[in-house]
């Protein structure tokens, strides 16, 4: 169980000043409890704060104020490493690319073993059948879909208590999204993993037990998908009219 209490994250409004001066609040007083073993879907407009909130839980962003607890233990001041060891895992929206580090390297760090049979079992469970894939360098040559599969595999290999996937579906072909949802569901059911998926994809949101909508750094909605749909449709209306049409005679044709 992960509990967020009045979590706030702000950065200096002006990049050049650190400490003092005006600040910009990105996550604004968020309180929420993620129950053990449930499947959450986080959605909301671009720039709303989904990634920032996920990184606060992983410890990549430090909380400015408020607290985060994992199974009753305050982890607000814990390092990324310690949170990872305590059972939190985060799959990045934009995965790191390395030079010379292979998928096998990442996977064996994640799984804590370099035993070939163990690694093969993990990737087979993810429908990655080609063993050659293990020795692929995790560099800029990987396609968008390949890097996402690698990111997902490293999270599952950690066998975490809380797994956060930040847009695992971007770049994944439509035919793979269904099986990917199945994999996350299976992990949730078999291992009781608290699963949090940030996504704009309906297939993921339909799989969730509860939807969280983050907008302007706040939780704008939480509950079932049905209640979220009207808000989501509202959001899909264009809000860039002024910007796009400008002041001269450009007109929107939507």
């Amino acid at each position: 169980m992960i509990e967020l209490k009045n979590v706030r994250f702000s950065v200096p409004a002006d990049e050049s000043n650190d400490g003092g001066g005006p600040t910009k609040t990105i996550i604004n007083d968020v309180s929420f409890t993620f129950e053990k073993g449930k499947f959450y879907g986080i959605t909301g407009p671009n720039g709303g704060g989904k990634t920032t909130l996920s990184k606060l839980i992983m410890g990549i962003n430090p909380v400015t104020s408020g607290s985060i607890t994992l199974d009753g233990q305050d982890i607000s001041d814990m390092s990324i490493t310690d949170r990872a060891r305590a059972g939190i895992a985060y799959g990045f929206q934009n995965s790191a690319r390395f030079k010379g580090t292979t998928f096998r390297d990442l996977l064996s760090i994640a799984a804590g073993t370099d035993d070939e049979a163990a690694l093969t079992r993990i990737i087979a469970g993810l429908g990655i059948c080609s063993l050659d894939f293990l020795d692929k360098p995790v560099d800029t040559k990987l396609s968008g879909g390949e890097i996402k599969k690698i990111e997902l595999a490293t999270i599952i290999a950690r066998n975490p208590k809380v797994a956060i996937y930040d847009e695992p579906d971007t770049g994944i072909d439509l035919w793979t999204i269904g099986p990917m949802v199945e994999v996350l569901k299976r992990e949730q059911k078999e291992k009781g993993t608290t699963t949090i998926v940030v996504s704009h994809n309906r297939t993921f949101l339909e799989a969730a037990d509860e939807i969280l909508m983050i907008r302007d750094g706040r939780i704008a909605y939480s509950g079932g998908l049905d209640g979220a749909l009207p808000i989501l449709e509202d959001l899909s209306a264009c809000s860039f009219g002024d910007l796009c049409e400008g002041e001269t005679d450009v007109r929107c044709f939507r």
């Binding site: 990045f92 995965s95 690319r97 994640a110 804590g112």
Partner: peptide
């Protein structure tokens, strides 16, 4: 790169271990 360090730390390595792994791979 910071994102490389963050990724390895989020897989449970310490900062120093992450640096070592990245350099090992780079020079491999």
């Amino acid at each position: 790169a910071n994102d490389q360090l963050m990724k390895l730390m989020s897989l449970g390595l310490t900062y120093d271990e992450s640096v070592n792994r990245i350099i090992q791979g780079f020079l491999k």
